[in-house]
């Protein structure tokens, strides 16, 4: 059964006379007990998608479409109702823990806040609970009185995980949980997250640009480019049989695959190219790609891909 279903989501920002189309008609389903990865370059709109699901976007945004969470459309719920869902049944691990943690509150107080707000616990009870979840992520509860600057990058990430997991939410959104960490710390964070998510039967949306991490954790992967999902497939299909030219390029750019590079920059979200967003950098670009915007197509191996190369093979979704 699907826990979360996103239908035709569009997120636009108005900035001066420009409209930044950060997410353009996103369709995505997250099943129960599934870890889904969202990968793509910086600025392709993946973090915005995470924030849209948490309904955490600022006022100058225009959001269209539907986000169904257990059958309820999050975008039409009143703020008071959202507050009971946010942090409790949908948790988020924000990007860049050094910036996400409050520098003047001890970490114990910051985590206890969650319990005091959602469960109306007393300070004492909240403290007990906090000690419990700190232990769960491998931090000595005696360090509860310490402040964020006294912890290393990997430890801060663990604190963020503790906060996101405080209520064992049914859906966890993790935004770049391993960015800027060294390989050993990265592995320990990946293992911690995977074990917690699997043992508590949660679903997770993992937003990252690290393909190694995706490989270790995810069941399915959505590849984003310029505000769109351009390929959606199981992790094995993505790695063994990537379909979209961009996915191929992305995988080929890894050091152990030869570090092949592709010229050009990812397009600006305020004036994306016509037709297929990837055509200016694509080696297979045809005339059609410049004019028409490709729909999602289903290939014979079950991969959904937004590319005209696969048009002959099957029907449009």
């Amino acid at each position: 059964m699907s826990l979360l279903e996103i239908k035709g989501l569009r997120v636009f920002f108005r900035s001066g006379d420009r409209t930044i189309k950060a997410n353009n008609s996103i369709d995505l389903e997250v099943m129960d007990n599934e870890i889904i990865g969202i990968i793509g370059e910086t600025g392709c709109g993946k973090s915005i998608l995470g924030r849209a699901i948490m309904t955490l976007l600022s006022d100058n945004t225009e959001i269209n479409g539907k986000i169904f969470y257990k059958g309820e459309d999050l975008l039409s719920l009143p703020e008071s109702k959202l507050r009971t869902i946010r942090g409790k049944s949908i948790g988020i691990i924000l990007q860049n823990p050094s910036a996400a943690l409050n520098p003047v509150l001890s970490i114990g107080d910051q985590i206890a806040e969650v319990f005091q707000y959602h469960e109306k616990m007393s300070k004492q009870e909240a403290k007990m609970k906090t000690a419990g979840i700190l232990k769960m992520v491998g931090i000595d509860p005696n360090r509860m009185q310490e402040f964020p600057h006294q912890f290393s990058g990997g430890m801060k990430q663990r604190i963020m995980i503790a906060m996101g997991m405080a209520f064992s939410p049914e859906l966890l959104i993790a935004d770049e949980p391993t960015k800027g960490l060294d390989p050993e710390t990265k592995d320990s964070i990946v293992n911690l997250l995977r074990n917690l998510v699997r043992s508590k039967n949660m679903s997770m949306i993992l937003i990252t640009h690290d393909l190694d991490v995706t490989e270790k954790m995810c069941d399915r992967v959505a590849v984003m480019y310029a505000g769109e999902i351009i390929e959606l497939a199981s992790i094995n299909n993505i790695l063994a049989a990537p379909r979209h030219p961009y996915t191929k390029v992305l995988l080929g750019s890894l050091p152990n695959k030869g570090l092949r590079s592709v010229p050009g920059e990812s397009p600006s979200l305020s004036s994306p190219p016509s037709g297929c967003r990837f055509h200016p950098r694509c080696v297979h670009a045809m005339d059609e790609c410049k004019k028409d915007h490709p729909p999602m197509l289903l290939t014979e191996i079950g991969t959904e891909v937004r590319c005209f190369l696969y048009k002959g093979d099957q029907d449009q979704i």
Binding site: E41, D182, H209, V249, L250, R260, S261, V262
Partner: peptide, 30 residues
């Protein structure tokens, strides 16, 4: 701090400069 595609562009550029200009590198990374 860069994502894989940009990383490959930058590294290819550095390698190209090494070949063309004979620059030596002390390359620090994890």
């Amino acid at each position: 701090m860069l994502d894989p595609l940009v990383q490959s562009q930058i590294l290819n550029l550095l390698k190209d400069l090494q070949k063309r200009l004979g620059i030596s590198y002390l390359f620090i990374s994890h």
